[in-house]
Amino acid sequence: MSKNPGASIPTTKTARQARVTALLTSRAVRSQAELATLLADDGLVVGQATLSRDLVELRAVRVRGEDGGLIYAVPREGGDRSVHSVSSQELLDTRLVRLCGELLVTAEASGNIVVLRTPPGAANFLALAIDHSVMPSILGTLAGDDTVMIITRDSLGGAAVAERFLQFAAESGAGG
């Protein structure tokens, strides 16, 4: 049974590799067996040979974790293979707050949809920062040129998420 209720992960290679990447960037995974178990928890049963090929295609390597043990890591923006630790997650969240202060023009909600407006050309940049942050209330984002649409998990959660982004903008102190 999936630990992510309501989640539906197709059994395609692309979806599986996206889930592998998400797992490797969100936690320390020490072995292929551990990774296979995590995938099985999400309803994706994968053989060892398939998992090995996925790791090669994703350019995953084993690096030293914070405790000195070897863990899998995949390249992120700029080829960085450092592990997402609490401190690096805090940096990502700090970046999101800063970007909201610099780029957020408006935030409005309707039901479980939030629409963020940015200057022209900035929506993808903000959406990427949102996607890399850990906000369990967010199901996903879509970005255009100057608009980011966010879908929340809660059918009435849009207003709270929109308010949170407005608070991020206010917290940043940017735009003076």
Results as ranks from 00 to 15, higher is better:
residue 64 R to K: 15
residue 98 R to N: 06
residue 28 A to Y: 13
residue 108 E to H: 04
residue 94 T to D: 11
residue 25 T to H: 09
residue 94 T to C: 04
residue 50 T to E: 11
residue 116 L to F: 05
residue 82 S to Q: 14
residue 76 R to D: 13
residue 72 Y to G: 04
residue 86 V to Y: 10
residue 37 T to L: 07
residue 96 L to C: 10
residue 37 T to C: 01
residue 70 L to R: 15
residue 83 V to F: 12
residue 25 T to I: 10
residue 106 T to L: 00
residue 68 G to D: 11
residue 92 L to V: 15
residue 75 P to L: 07
residue 30 R to V: 06
residue 78 G to K: 11
residue 53 R to D: 08
residue 73 A to S: 15
residue 39 L to S: 02
residue 66 E to S: 14
residue 42 D to A: 07
residue 118 T to C: 02
residue 35 L to F: 10
residue 75 P to A: 09
residue 33 A to L: 12
residue 43 G to I: 01
residue 74 V to I: 08
residue 45 V to K: 13
residue 55 L to W: 10
residue 90 E to N: 11
residue 114 V to W: 04
residue 50 T to P: 02
residue 29 V to W: 09
residue 53 R to E: 06
residue 62 R to F: 07
residue 93 D to K: 07
residue 57 E to Y: 08
residue 111 G to Y: 02
residue 49 A to W: 05
residue 31 S to C: 08
residue 37 T to W: 03
residue 65 G to I: 04
residue 89 Q to V: 05
residue 69 G to E: 15
residue 68 G to N: 09
residue 106 T to C: 00
residue 111 G to I: 00
residue 118 T to H: 02
residue 60 A to C: 10
residue 111 G to W: 01
residue 105 V to N: 00
residue 50 T to V: 12
residue 25 T to M: 09
residue 109 A to Y: 05
residue 38 L to K: 05
residue 39 L to P: 02
residue 38 L to Q: 07
residue 104 L to A: 01
residue 55 L to C: 09
residue 114 V to E: 01
residue 25 T to A: 04
residue 87 S to K: 11
residue 34 E to V: 11
residue 44 L to T: 00
residue 62 R to S: 12
residue 59 R to N: 14
residue 54 D to I: 05
residue 97 V to I: 15
residue 83 V to L: 14
residue 37 T to A: 13
residue 74 V to T: 14
residue 38 L to E: 09
residue 73 A to F: 09
residue 48 Q to E: 14
residue 37 T to V: 09
residue 81 R to D: 02
residue 59 R to H: 15
residue 114 V to L: 02
residue 104 L to N: 01
residue 102 E to N: 03
residue 103 L to A: 02
residue 74 V to Q: 05
residue 62 R to Q: 15
residue 38 L to V: 01
residue 26 S to N: 13
residue 109 A to P: 04
residue 75 P to Q: 10
residue 54 D to P: 07
residue 103 L to F: 09
residue 54 D to Y: 08
residue 29 V to G: 08
residue 45 V to H: 10
residue 27 R to D: 07
residue 50 T to Q: 14
